[in-house]
Design a protein around this nucleic acid. Structure first.
Length: 923
RNA sequence: GCCUUGGUGGUGGAAUUGGUAGACACGCAGGACUUAAAAUCCUGUCUUCAGCAACGGAGGUGCGGGUUCGAUUCCCGCCUGAGGCACCA
């Protein structure tokens, strides 16, 4: 009897479906465990071998936890709204809903091939009204709430209004990032404001709000992008240029959550690099705001407010720099400098974001004005330069060339004299940013270490009423609207220029059909082309791709609920995602947004936890290993890699990795691959055509994708699953290489042969296992449990291989050994294990079995071989009982003949016990 | 430039808390079975020295130091790959 994986896998999968084997209940006496994959965007390209890596890992862990007796929630769905489907619609005229549904079908088929244990009855698609109704609902929650900075929590906007009516905004001043005038108002002020004014003020508090601001505008995509969607001045998707543009936009007030997003990192298990990426993105810095008086001209009462993290360097300030957009410029610029300043500001405006980032050349312009150092009355020239950003801090800095590299270069470039406050720590050729130097030239700070001077200066400034310590964040509020069609409509209606929320009963606000996907009359989204939509003054923007993905993990818990986004009892039961598996590319986008949404929903009392993901495991990226052929220029002759003398004389062309065996090209397949290559001739080395190779991102255009379907067809899903795990640690990125898959396939065949003999058929029996066999099994049980628990799936697979090899050597075929072995391997190779489990005569699914490691009858060995070394050199092995006391061990070792020979006549200095590993004598 | 994380045979990788480095697999070489192939199985495979052979000696985890009876693991200094951030004051 042969191992027929094609038949087995098909039958087992059918059985899983018919028996609803992976249906999960929201009530159970078992403890819960929630394993989540980052759901995919269903692109037209389908899955390649890189995608399933994380899915296989999460599937293994889910099955493992199930066998350990947990009620495991393991769902899957699709992040189905987004730009690519709409781009495709523009190019091919296919409705995004249709192409998306088609892509989802392909994804599903590919996933089913691999044999995942998802509860498909819980599938969600973010583009369906039943789902986005609740995305809109959560938007309304955010719209109708504000962030109470006193207790750092979101609260209903109604309590804010009540407070305004009583005491104005004294209890709740405007959020720090808001610059609204007047910044304070009394109760009677509030009550005298008309509706429009009141709404305008409230808009400055709402967690989801509409405002005008500089946004990243991408002309090619016809929409704005969030900061994390812009990479090096171009769009993440498509690489189109991005410019700053002032537009009316919706935002999420994520900046209010900055502190809690930072603190929350301490309570979750993310990798250090992930935590660091988020920490950097949030970018918290401690510093001080200082008001500098401006001298001369007609600028009485005017002051320049700067932000600095180093108030201790205040005696080293040699000039001020303000951003080109700074509002003071027109007021302080002297008549002599006006032309130069105007020219400079025009020059800065002409530069795109991309140019600014690409060439960081020093530029600037003197305003003619001077600020005054409050401690020594020194006159400090005020400059303008683009290296100071308008959006951060106060848009103005005090420049300390001896302590800051950028300031130093600027001073050098413009010949501004440099004051040294660092003594010998400053060498005159390079700034030194240390905080540990002793201050010089700093009057009352002389002789004090810089680090300690910070607080002293802050105190003085505060007493003088011209400064206060201040915390700043680099993170900006998140742009939340897109001028596109394929997204959630905002449940918002405009009236006299004021945005009003729809009521909950009007949800979902359905995405209407459109005739064209092109932008509206004034650059709005396609919805602006619909007369009825515009007549009702409905918002024409749609929500961005990350809206639906910011809360999908909650919907899985209760996907069919029509009354609520997720029943509170149900979310209390499933609680946090225990294990979240996905790539690092969402570090500062999705992961931050979903953390913020969770916190807001928690504050508003809709769920009971404020961090969505307890543990995050980042799978590495599987790269493609591309192959190249080399064509002599303007010929049809291809030259083998090793024979090329001059790379300028050849064209380097990608060749499909699937027609290359290792590095050797299948020349016949190549000639048939593309019409262009039909009459190709080859210059071979040793009778072979050898290709060049490079590791690149896996992509269709590079012909380096490997389709999992073909591997599953050839070797079976179990082999494929195990092989992806065997490749190496899941966290690690590595190029795909199929050549080792045979070894794993061989292992599964060996496993099969523990049960079946080709000639004799079934070979197992009911005899009692031998001690040796039990020892092998128990070692494997322990290893599997330990390795799987710490996500070391590759070493767990090695453990199976060792176990099966050793059992094969002993000709093991005892049921008492085989059954637990199968349970052990099931998470990794579910089809074949369940098939064999059934063959052993077990009626029930293996899902009902519990992990053998947890049954006390399996006792680990009672004694162990220890290596005994003398001065670190191993001299002999000794068998010692596990429960022996230290004294007993010492006696046994010292009376051993081999050891006595070595120790004889020498003095024993030390006797070292090493826990479960080895014993060492020092003489 | 800053931060994070790696560097181990021909290859992917293992070594969980400082305890016999190279598990497991690929590849390669040789052999068995076969008319032949496939499949399967066996042996060898870090370097080097010695040897008829069993056993054995020495070196070895990017480089150079240090701590320790003992270091792939800890500390210091360099080299280098990958990822992230980058005028954030």
């Amino acid at each position: 009897m042969e191992y027929d994986f094609r038949k087995i896998e098909k039958e087992r999968q059918k059985q899983w479906i018919n028996n609803h084997a992976y249906r999960v209940s929201n009530t159970s006496a078992k403890p819960k465990y929630y394993v989540l994959d980052m759901f995919p965007y269903p692109s037209g390209a389908g899955l390649h071998v890189g995608h399933p890596l994380g899915y296989i890992a999460s599937d293994i862990f889910s099955r493992f936890k199930r066998l350990k007796g947990y009620n495991v929630l393991h769902p899957m769905g699709y992040d189905a709204f987004g730009l690519p489907a709409e781009q495709y619609a523009i190019e091919h005229g296919v409705h995004p809903a249709i192409s998306t549904a088609k892509n989802i079908d392909t994804f599903r088929k590919q996933m089913d091939n691999i044999g995942f244990s998802y509860d498909w009855e819980r599938e969600v698609r973010t583009c369906e009204p039943e789902y986005y109704k609740w995305t809109q609902w959560i938007f309304l929650q955010l719209f109708n709430s504000f962030f109470n900075t006193n207790n750092q929590k979101a609260e209903s906007i109604d309590s804010l209004i009540a407070s305004f009516e009583n005491v104005g905004n004294t209890l709740y001043p405007f959020p720090a990032a808001v610059n609204y005038q007047p910044s304070a108002f009394s109760a009677s002020d509030w009550n005298s404001f008309n509706e429009k004014q009141q709404q305008e003020i409230l808009m400055n508090y709402r967690l989801a709000f509409c405002g005008y601001g500089e946004v990243n505008w991408c002309e090619a995509l016809g929409t704005v992008l969030a900061n994390d969607e812009v990479v090096n001045g171009v769009s993440e998707r498509g690489g189109h240029p991005v410019v700053k543009k002032k537009l009316r936009q919706w935002y999420l007030r994520i900046t209010e959550y900055a502190d809690r997003l930072l603190e929350g990192l301490e309570s979750v298990e993310f990798s250090d690099s992930m935590k660091e990426m988020q920490t950097n993105w949030i970018g918290k810095s401690y510093g001080a705001e200082i008001d500098f008086a401006i001298s001369g001209i007609s600028t009485e009462g005017l002051s320049l407010k700067v932000y600095t993290t180093r108030p201790d360097t205040i005696f080293g300030v040699d000039f001020m720099v303000i951003a080109p957009e700074h509002e003071l410029i027109t007021m302080i610029t002297t008549t002599e400098q006006k032309t130069a300043v105007d020219e400079y500001c025009a020059y800065v405006k002409s530069r795109s974001e991309r140019e600014r980032q690409a060439e960081k050349k020093i530029s600037g312009c003197f305003t003619g004005a001077y600020a005054v150092n409050p401690f020594n009355d020194a006159r400090i020239p005020i400059w303008i330069s683009e290296y100071v950003l308008a959006g951060y801090g106060t848009g103005a800095i005090m420049a300390v060339p001896c302590g800051d590299d950028r300031d130093f270069k600027f001073a050098q470039y413009f010949n501004i004299p440099i004051t040294n406050i660092l003594g010998d720590a400053f060498n005159g050729t390079e700034a030194n940013a240390t905080k540990d130097a002793i201050l010089h030239n700093s009057e009352f700070l002389n002789g004090i270490v810089m680090r300690d001077a910070i607080a002293i200066v802050n105190d003085r400034l505060e007493n003088m009423g011209i400064g206060k310590s201040k915390v700043n964040f680099r993170m900006r509020d998140a742009a939340f609207s897109r001028q596109r069609y394929w997204g959630e409509p905002f449940p918002v209606q405009w009236e006299n220029g004021t945005a009003y929320p729809l009521s909950e009963t009007e949800l979902p606000l359905l995405l209407p059909e459109v005739e064209t996907y092109s932008p509206g009359p004034e650059g709005e989204g396609p919805l602006a082309n619909i007369p009825e939509w515009v007549a009702k003054e409905l918002e024409t923007n749609t929500m961005p791709g990350y809206a639906g993905s910011s809360w999908y993990f909650l919907r899985y818990m209760d996907p069919q609920n029509n009354e609520s986004f997720c029943d509170r009892k149900v979310s209390d039961y499933w609680n946090q995602v225990d294990l979240y598996i996905g790539g690092t590319e969402h570090a500062v986008g999705h992961l931050l947004y979903s953390r913020m949404w969770t916190k807001a929903l928690c504050d508003l009392g809709h769920i009971s936890f404020d961090e969505p993901f307890k543990k995050l495991l980042n799978q590495g990226m599987i790269q493609g290993s591309s192959r190249f052929v080399y064509r002599l220029k303007s010929t049809k002759e291809f030259i083998s890699f090793g024979l090329i003398l001059d790379f300028d004389s050849v064209d380097k062309l990608h060749v499909d990795v699937n027609i290359v065996d290792g590095f050797e090209l299948d020349t016949h397949a190549f000639a048939n691959w593309k019409p262009d290559y039909a009459g190709a001739s080859f210059q071979l080395e040793d009778g072979k055509y050898i290709c060049g190779s490079e590791v690149e991102k896996m992509s269709k255009s590079k012909f380096n994708t490997v389709n999992p379907d073909e591997l599953v067809q050839k070797f079976g899903a179990d082999t494929f699953r195990m092989y992806e795990m065997f490749l190496g640690p899941v966290e690690q990125s590595k190029p795909w290489d199929t050549k080792g898959i045979e070894g794993v396939h061989r292992f599964i065949k060996k496993l099969w042969r523990l049960f079946y003999d080709e000639m004799k058929g079934r070979v197992w029996n009911e005899q009692t296992p031998t001690a040796d066999e039990l020892k092998i099994l128990h070692r494997a049980i322990k290893k599997t449990e330990d390795d799987t628990e710490r996500f070391s799936f590759n070493t767990a697979v090695s453990g199976f291989m060792i176990c099966v090899n050793e059992l094969g050597d002993l000709k093991c075929n005892k049921r008492a050994i085989l059954e637990p072995l199968l349970v052990l391997i099931t998470p990794y190779a579910p089809h074949v294990c369940e098939e064999l489990w059934g063959a052993l005569g077990n009626e029930n699914s293996i899902l009902d079995a519990s992990y053998p490691a947890f049954e006390s009858k399996y006792v680990m060995e009672s004694s162990k071989e220890y290596p005994v070394s003398i001065n670190g050199k191993v001299r002999t092995n000794m068998s010692i009982a596990l429960d022996a006391t230290q004294e007993q061990v010492q006696e046994i070792v010292l009376t051993n003949a081999t050891i006595q020979k070595w120790v004889e006549g020498k003095q024993l200095k030390k006797f070292i016990f090493v826990k479960g590993k080895m014993i060492n004598l020092v003489i």
